[in-house]
Design a protein around this nucleic acid. Structure first.
Length: 423
RNA sequence: GGAGAAAUGGCAGAGUGGUCGAAUGCGGCAGUCUUGAAAACUGUUGAGGGUCACACCUCCGGGGGUUCGAAUCCCUCUUUCUCCGCCA
């Protein structure tokens, strides 16, 4: 959520920047500013009314104490209209505040200056590319075929138990999953991220805190009986650790990592590109989350990008990094780098990580602040990234590491797997 | 699931109708002392709105109510603790 003060001070710049997202924010920003003014004037009226009745109440109290009940009763009568007024102003204020809040929820984050203009993923800017794309021999298979051939992932079994998009990993497939999770967590903790285990369901307040609500309401599984949401990413519970918190400036950087399953309804996204592991309702992901000083957050973002690069180098997977264009940028992000691995047998790039800086957008919703050197509360910056999302990494490994003899296990994973080949 | 108790500032903990944004202790910060540190002493120390700055307003788990006036009384929800039951 954008800060009102910033919106007041930089209205035109913000509207101009939001054009990169291909939206004309002018009308909504105008309504916000108008409502804000109304809010403040109503607040003042309410405050004045309350101040007066506070004063009267004190007088009445003093009169009673000095035994002047008669005079007190006279004053009491005057409080009637004040009460009505304050009730009226109060209700009005609540309504305006609610309205204002709803409008603010609808304005996405302001893209960083480096975000390229554009409307679709085709306009994303490739900023880095590394690793050799293996040339596969005749008869090489996409991962869903490999999964079947070596009996390591059973998609049909998942359909039977839950539905499409809930694969069952078997034997060495399951072990490889676990190996990847442990390997990622080890890499992250080595880099200074503290490992966390967090709830896989969150309440409504958490959903609002990180911005999944109300924007992506339909993308999360909702448990009606208890009003909880299955997490679409560990970002939600991990970042919400710091909801309503004021941290010390010297606590920065706050670095956390967590493995969780992720649940996404993926409503409406069916088609040729969702085969196999490409798009699932439940998948595993190891996430890194940072809370940062505003001046350091973009350095931190670069650091996170380097960190993910290192992991992909170790796995020896060909990948590229994209800077998302305005049209593809997530609602809450100011700047996002997507990592994609090349899936050789499918001959396409698969997104495996998304690293973002949210600046104060989430922090404002979360009320995540820090004390600056003058002792004043300031909003912190939040960032997160996948390090990494499992299924597509797995798809990349299966396809790129396939040989006539079987699937080779990347060297760094062998100690975690206990085998070096899936035959 | 049943019965009871409780929810106050970073923490502990007082406060049962007005002078309470809230005693006291610990912690934090600043200072005195000290070569430095510790101890001791002194001062300071919640959040938000509002204002050029003051004033002023709101917040004692959430919501509603009683009252001229509520941390304090009533209703309700949530959470925590204790006991019983069930159970990984």
């Amino acid at each position: 959520m954008l800060q009102l003060q910033t919106l007041r001070d930089n209205k035109d710049t913000i509207i101009a920047a939001l054009q990169k997202r291909n939206i004309d924010a002018a009308p909504i920003v105008d309504s916000v500013l108008l409502l804000d003014e109304k809010r403040r004037s109503t607040q003042t009226e309410l405050d004045n009314t309350l101040a007066e009745s506070n004063k009267l109440s004190k007088e009445i109290g003093n009169l009673y104490k000095t035994g002047k009940a008669q005079e007190a009763n006279v004053l009491k009568e005057k409080t009637g209209t004040l009460k009505e007024d304050s009730k009226r102003f109060g209700d009005e204020l609540n309504a305006i505040t609610e309205q204002l809040q709803q409008l603010l929820y609808q304005i996405p984050n302001v893209p960083h200056e480096s975000v390229p203009a554009g409307s679709t993923e085709d306009d994303n800017e490739e900023v880095f590319k590394e690793g050799d794309i293996p040339v596969l021999k005749e008869g090489s298979l996409p991962h869903w075929e490999l999964a079947k051939k070596y009996d390591i992932i059973d998609f049909e079994l998942g359909v039977k138990i839950a539905g499409a998009g809930f694969p069952v990993y078997k034997g060495k497939g399951a072990r490889l999953q676990r190996a990847l999770i442990t390997y990622f967590l080890d890499k992250n903790t080595e880099a200074g991220y503290t490992e966390m285990q967090v709830p896989h369901m969150v309440n409504e307040a958490s959903g609002y805190g990180t911005g999944q609500l109300p924007d992506k309401e339909g993308q999360m599984y909702h448990i009606g009986a208890d009003d909880l949401y299955l997490i679409p990413t560990a970002e939600v519970p991990v970042t919400n650790i710091f909801r309503d918190e004021i941290v010390n400036e010297q606590d920065f950087p706050i670095c956390m990592t967590a493995y969780t399953p992720c649940f996404r309804r993926e409503a409406g996204s069916y088609g040729a590109h969702v085969r196999g592991l490409n798009r699932l309702h439940q998948f595993d992901k190891v996430e890194i989350v940072r809370v940062e000083h505003p001046e350091k957050s973009f350095d931190a973002l670069d650091g996170m990008v380097e960190h993910v690069k290192n992991i992909l180098r170790e796995l020896k997977l060909p990948y590229r990094i994209l800077r998302l264009c305005g049209g593809d940028l997530g609602f809450t992000a100011a700047l996002t780098y997507d990592f994609e691995v090349f899936s050789t047998a499918q001959d396409r790039w698969l997104e495996i990580s998304s690293v973002s800086n949210f600046e104060t957008y989430q922090a404002n919703r979360l009320k995540l602040r820090y004390k600056d050197e003058n002792g004043k509360s300031q909003l912190a910056h939040t960032l997160n990234g996948s390090a990494l999302a499992l299924p597509r990494v797995l798809a990349g490994i299966l396809e790129n590491y396939q040989t006539a003899e079987g699937i080779q296990i990347p060297e760094v994973l062998v100690p975690y797997c206990g085998f070096d080949m899936i035959k």
